[in-house]
Nucleic acid binder design. Structure first.
Length: 269
DNA sequence: CTAATCACCTGAAGGC
DNA sequence: TGCCTTCAGGTGATTA
């Protein structure tokens, strides 16, 4: 479900709500959700900071950290103590804070994970540079794209080179930069790589401004849907006319994923 | 190195 | 109505 803009939205909301709060109890309902790789007690630790790398949410505590990945249907919901009726149908874990508020982890498909680690870098070192990182400048992006023989869609979808992009935002970025998703990365001309770089940034920034995209399950930390699904140009737009040329948007399978594009506007390199 | 397939899970939607 | 197949914001393992 969630890609970079959705995860970013959740983190921004949670920062103002849970930093400084003391964890009283962690309850795990679906055992596979919680992976404990650290002996330290979670109980009595205080939330110190939150940050994101790609689609990973890092919650720093006093002497250890929680790393959350929402995968397809995960949700992190913050609940005030006064809240009553909550839907527990897909509740997989929850954190109770000492002031009575709670952080719920809902996950319909059970793919999501909460890792408890002493050293977050062990997981994060396998994840590529964040797509919104200032350190990912145009020169670095060019070098990375030019040195891969993968199809550009698969390259962008892989998290080991650049992290944070998923199926929606890859399709949208490739459309806006006029690149066919099956193009070989290394064959893409520099002007198009530069365009892809700036369109990725624009697409992600705009989606964050819209609180992410909700296809079905995504909710932010307050339980609200995103808004960005109303602005898709190709994702799930198959059969509709391209906003730019009027040609019918196509859907194919690429790298095992549904892939949406305009056969007229997106050039094969 | 790249690609394809399956596995992990649940539910919605479409075909017959 | 009911059964069966396919598909879904992700990723990791395994096999060509």
């Amino acid at each position: 479900m969630p890609e970079l803009p959705e995860v970013e939205t959740v983190i921004r909301e949670l920062k103002s709500k849970i930093i400084g709060k003391q964890i009283q109890k962690l309850s795990v309902i679906w055992h596979k959700t919680f992976v404990n790789n650290c002996e330290t007690d979670i109980e009595d630790q205080t939330v110190r900071a939150l940050r994101r790398k790609g689609k990973y949410i890092l919650i720093y505590l006093n002497t250890s950290a929680l790393i959350v990945h929402l995968r397809m249907t995960g949700q992190l919901l913050f609940i005030e103590e006064s809240s009553t009726q909550i839907d527990t149908a897909y509740l997989r874990a929850s954190i109770q804070f000492s002031d009575g508020s709670r952080l719920l982890f809902n996950d319909k498909r059970k793919f999501g994970r909460i890792y408890h680690v002493s050293e977050p870098e062990i997981i994060l070192n396998k994840v590529g540079i964040d797509a919104m990182s200032p350190k990912l400048d145009i020169a670095k992006f060019r070098t990375m794209v030019k040195s891969s023989k993968m199809k550009i869609k698969s390259f962008l979808l892989s998290q080991k080179y650049i992290s944070g992009l998923g199926n929606i935002y890859v399709d949208e970025s490739l459309f806006r930069s006029g690149i066919h998703p099956a193009s070989v990365s290394a064959a893409i001309e520099e002007f198009a790589i530069d365009s892809l770089y700036s369109e990725i940034r624009k697409v992600l920034t705009f989606a964050i401004k819209n609180m992410g995209s909700t296809i079905s399950d995504y909710r932010d930390a307050n339980g609200n849907m995103g808004n960005n699904q109303n602005f898709f140009r190709v994702y799930q737009q198959q059969g509709k006319p391209c906003v730019s040329c009027g040609q019918e948007i196509q859907k194919i399978k690429l790298g095992g994923r549904g892939t949406h594009f305009c056969p007229q506007c997106q050039r094969m390199f």
